[in-house]
Every structure is written in structure tokens, then in C-alpha cells.
Nucleic acid binder design. Structure first.
Lengths: 129, 129
DNA sequence: CAGTATCCTTTCCGATACTG
DNA sequence: CAGTATCGGAAAGGATACTG
């Protein structure tokens, strides 16, 4: 159980600092421009480097490479080299990566479901300023 | 089940480009170093500027200010000035912000629940390299 | 207290050229 | 095809000093 619910704040531990740090750390790790987009793309099935690049929507090779390396490091994707004449490299989600899709979809769905409210808030703020 | 399409890709729209863009856009908006941490802190109740700063864990005033401004803009938090001798400013989640807590907690809980798997993957990768 | 203004360092990230 | 190497501009973000 995560608890982190503040509704019952313990005296000493404000909410369990180390857990919060771990979460913050992991959040920081996925909070970059491409990670979630890549995970979502691979969620629809394995893809080769160039196909993935097209799918994600104009990301430089450099960034896609480093994003994929990080995902590999976290155990979210596998990298499989198929030694053909021009080499092929296929990227796919691991079980862990696939599991991760669930909470990510949770955010994505929430965003879509609440887009009206968000847009309204933004419009209101813009008008207020 | 989340489905997240792909299982039935429409001919023209690969997964609905504009929706994906909207999600990516919103994801980008919250994918910064402090936003999710602040939302989580405020999820436990309203806080004043300095208290929030302590809670989040050493963030510069500049960054906390800009993070809060963005959250205000998106309609996730309110800013209430209480005109006392030294002014007090209280930040609190709106209904929208509170709702947003749900998917965010989803990620946080997933991270905590799977920390063992993640750490194992990272250790394995480190050893492999 | 709750910021704003300014400066300055660090990191991000795209463009380009090259390689097995 | 699937990268790596290098460069440079842009943006993020911290430190400090100052203000109502």
C-alpha cells in the first residue's frame, strides 16, 4: 500500500520522505519529451528504429536513441538485433514496460476525458490576465 | 482493460493524431521537474508558499513560482492572498486539480509497487554493460 | 512572507556529417 | 538501416540580491 494520503499524516514522517524521493526520481526519469510517447507507440506492438521514429513524430535520431537506451536501462524495452544485410533492430516492450502502460494510459485517458475542463480553465485564465 | 487502440487501427488516422498530440502536449506541460511533486504535496491539503517549498524539498523560489503559475493557468490550483501584516498566500487544489490526483497517484502507486522489478532491471543492465 | 529581477551555469536537443 | 560523433543554439534552472 502506498498510503501517501495525507489524510492521516504521521507525526515524524511527513509522508515518507524516501518513498516520495523514489517516486520523484522515477517521475523525473520518465518526465522527458519522448519517453511516454515512445512507450505508448510500442504499446501497439514492436517496431524497428525508423518505424518508431516515424510513429513518434519527428524526433531526432539522437534523442530517440538516448530515450530508448534509458528505457532499456529501466527494463521497459528490449532491443533485438536481427543481423541481415542491412541490419534491423527491433524494439519491444518487456512485461514490465507493458505493465507500465496501464498507469500511463490512465493519465492519457484522464487528459482526454477532461480536456474540456482544462481548456476552459486555460481560456478563463487567459481572459483573467 | 485499457485497449489504447492499435488493436484496431483506423485506416486514415493511425491512432488519431490530434488526440495523441493533445495528450503529448498535456504530458509535456506536466513533465517538468516539479509539477507532479507540487500536485502531490497539495493533495494533502492547502499550503502556503514557504511551507510548500519545504514540503517539495529544496526547489528554488523561482521554479516553485513558475510551477505554481502554470498550475494556476491549467486550472489545477488556486492562489489566495490573505492580506495580513506580512502577506500570506495559500495554494490549494481546485476540483480539477484534485481529480487529476487520481491518475497521478496511479503512476506513483505503480512505481512503488514495481520498484523491486525496476531496481532489478537497472542492476541487471548496469552489470550487463 | 512572498515574491521579482538579474545573472550565469548546466542541460537539452536538433542539425549535420560520418560509419559498420 | 541503425546508429555514433561533434557542434552550437535554446531553454531550463539555480544563486543571489532586492522589493512591497
Amino acid at each position: 500500500m502506498v498510503d501517501q494520503e495525507g489524510t492521516s499524516p504521521k507525526p515524524g514522517a511527513r509522508v515518507d520522505t524516501s518513498t516520495c524521493e523514489y517516486i520523484g526520481d522515477m517521475l523525473a526519469r520518465i518526465s522527458d519529451k519522448w519517453t511516454l510517447l515512445v512507450v505508448r507507440s510500442l504499446g501497439r506492438g514492436p517496431l524497428r528504429f525508423s518505424a518508431l521514429r516515424r510513429e513518434v513524430g519527428e524526433v531526432s535520431k539522437k534523442m530517440l536513441t538516448s530515450t530508448l537506451r534509458e528505457l532499456e536501462e529501466n527494463g521497459f524495452v528490449t532491443r533485438t538485433v536481427i543481423p541481415t544485410r542491412p541490419p534491423q533492430v527491433e524494439y519491444a516492450l518487456t512485461d514490465l514496460g507493458h505493465d507500465f502502460l496501464t498507469p500511463v494510459q490512465g493519465i492519457a485517458e484522464w487528459v482526454v476525458k477532461n480536456s474540456t475542463r482544462i481548456d476552459a480553465a486555460r481560456a478563463s485564465y487567459a481572459g483573467r490576465v
